[in-house]
């Protein structure tokens, strides 16, 4: 897999990312913030699927939990928004770990199935009438948009962008280090050959549920950020289709390649709009066709494309 380990490339990308909101419109800044949010969620999914070989169609549930934890803390407990992120992350880690425990015994399709059911059931659980006091029922919860601190001369959208960018960089670096660590190697050993991994003394059960937990943590933090950025949570924002989007983002970016999440996030945010511009009524169909065509022509996603491009670049140099 290609790595963006060329420091010059990385620095250049970060520099562009820093300058960008100063030169583009607020709405585009808002959209870029969402790309980052999705990228974090996709990194979470990638840790699970790309590096540990477990499938999930249920990450919309973790995203929802993160979003609701953040919204409820701000709405009911007046939590400062930045403080909701660790709480949301921990809540999702625990939930993911617990869901991962039984899911451990499940191979590929069964896990996909269990998580699919989780994704479909989540909006309904959020709507349950006894929980309405906290969740706001079908209406959901509206939260306030945070302003830039310390009197910084930034619009709310710009500030949120920088805030999200910081979190994104931290989470990406952490994911990188995790994957490169002993733990990461154990995760991949389990993916590639569970029997050999077991004979090497790796505790498969523990690692698999921990990975599930970490993956949920990432997606939960993304959900919390998403709630803050969009200023609104409601059950129907977190349907099965969100899981689909994240999965599509993962495949598009390249399974098992962390920077792919940014390509995936951009795809998930912009391509449905693009599809809509082709044909309003048929946007779903256009999106579906794009997914299928992508699987045919570029099964390794942006990762494969980047690899080919960098090979070409080196051959030329």
């Amino acid at each position: 897999m290609p790595r963006l380990n060329n420091p010059r490339v990385t620095l250049a990308i970060i520099a562009v990312a820093l300058v960008l909101p100063l030169v583009i419109q607020n709405f585009l800044t808002f959209q870029l913030t969402l790309v980052l949010v999705y990228a974090i969620a996709i990194i979470g999914l990638n840790l699970l699927t790309g590096f540990n070989g477990q499938f999930s169609l249920g990450h919309s549930a973790f995203y929802a939990i993160g979003a609701y934890v953040a919204a409820m803390l701000m709405d009911k407990a007046d939590f400062p928004y930045a403080m909701t992120l660790p709480v949301a992350g921990i809540a999702c880690f625990v939930f993911g770990f617990l869901f991962g425990l039984p899911a451990l015994r499940l191979e590929g399709v069964y896990l996909a199935l269990a998580t699919f059911a989780l994704a479909v059931a989540t909006p309904q659980i959020l709507k349950l009438s006894p929980l309405e006091h906290w969740t706001g029922g079908v209406q959901g919860i509206v939260v306030n948009k945070p302003e830039a601190p310390f009197g910084l001369p930034l619009t709310e959208d710009q500030w949120l962008y920088y805030f999200t960018l910081l979190i994104t960089i931290v989470m990406t670096v952490l994911a990188h280090n995790l994957v490169a660590s002993r733990t990461g190697r154990a995760m991949m050993a389990i993916r590639d050959n569970p029997i050999a991994a077991r004979s090497m003394g790796i505790n498969i059960a523990l690692y698999k549920s921990l990975t599930f937990g970490v993956s949920a943590l990432y997606t939960g933090v993304a959900g919390a950020l998403g709630a803050i950025v969009v200023q609104f949570v409601a059950p129907d924002s977190f349907t099965f289709f969100l899981s689909i989007s994240l999965l599509v983002g993962l495949v598009v970016g390249g399974v098992g390649w962390i920077p792919g999440a940014f390509f995936g996030g951009a795809f998930v945010l912009f391509v449905p709009n693009l599809a809509e511009s082709f044909s309003k009524g048929l946007s779903g169909a256009v999106y579906g066709v794009m997914i299928i065509v992508l699987i045919y022509v570029l099964p390794t996603g942006a990762a494969g494309l980047t690899r080919a491009a960098s090979r070409w670049w080196r051959a030329k140099a």
Partner: peptide
């Protein structure tokens, strides 16, 4: 498997 799931999802959307 993942490619299959993605294709099924594409079909579903279509």
């Amino acid at each position: 498997v993942l490619s299959h799931v993605a294709v099924f999802i594409g079909l579903l959307a279509i």
